[in-house]
Amino acid sequence: MKKIQKVLIALLCCGFTLLPTRESNAIVPAGILEVIKAGVKKVIKAVDLRIQRLQNKTIWLQNAQKAIENAMAKLKLEEITEWTERQKTLYQEYFEELNKVKSIIAYYQKVRDISKKQARLLEAYQKAWNLLKKDKHFTAEELHTMSKVYEGMLSQSAKNIDQLLVIVNSFQTQMSDAKRLELIEQADKQIDIVFYDLIKFNRRNIRLSLMRAKAQHDVEAVKRFYNLQ
């Protein structure tokens, strides 16, 4: 992120002072977009499948608990001795397993939420970039610089997808709950940082276009172009 911020600062400090010529087209590598799209789909699909399996297991455990509770409730006091102790042990095992399953489902749901946030970030990028490329107030050189900033943001986003996949697969390893929660919080924080930088960068670019439009008396046209109120 430090590299992205340095590029962003340099971009803003120069004030986009180049002459408004458009000799070349700036393009963010499509490969990064495809990696993020495929990664988001992969994570959400894997999470949804595992949540469904765990929910089925939850229903089974709950039914097992209920059956034991009913059996114990029907016993007379003199019968609740050795048998009851065995059932209590079994009941406790079901109870602990049920809590564990519910905890895992909560982890998966958090991962899915982060993945959907990744998808919204991608949509925000594509919407802004598709408009900026068509904005006559920016030169080809300026768009090229913008594309490098966007590329850095998307590269970080792609790394975040890799971390989400590690988290999804962590339930099949010996990773502790504390470590898993730490990774989830890191991934969530990282995507929030990238999302914030993206939105801020988009807004600054649009404000710059409006400033240039003011000098050319076409502010309203720019507002309509970016769908601004």
Rank of each mutant, 00 (worst) to 15 (best):
A128W: 12
N130P: 01
V149A: 13
A178W: 02
A106I: 09
P29M: 06
T173F: 07
L122W: 02
L228Q: 12
Y94W: 10
H144W: 08
V7W: 03
G152A: 08
Q186S: 13
L132Y: 02
S157P: 00
W129F: 07
V40G: 00
I9Y: 12
M211Y: 06
A64D: 10
K2N: 09
R86T: 10
M211L: 02
A106E: 06
R224P: 01
W60L: 01
S115K: 05
W83V: 15
H144C: 03
L198M: 07
E185P: 01
F201D: 03
Y107L: 03
F171K: 15
L12A: 04
I105V: 15
L12M: 00
Q118T: 05
E185I: 10
R120M: 12
M211C: 02
Y94L: 12
M1I: 15
I68R: 02
F95K: 10
Y226P: 02
Q190L: 11
L75E: 13
K159C: 11
L49A: 15
L181Y: 09
H144D: 07
Q163P: 07
F201T: 01
T139V: 05
I36H: 00
F195Y: 13
N130R: 15
Y94D: 09
W83S: 15
I4M: 07
Q55M: 08
E141V: 10
L181E: 15
G152P: 02
H137I: 11
P20I: 04
A38P: 09
I184G: 00
N25Y: 14
T84V: 09
E142R: 07
R224W: 04
I44Y: 04
A158K: 11
L181C: 12
R204E: 15
Q163Y: 11
H217V: 11
K102L: 11
M153F: 08
E182C: 09
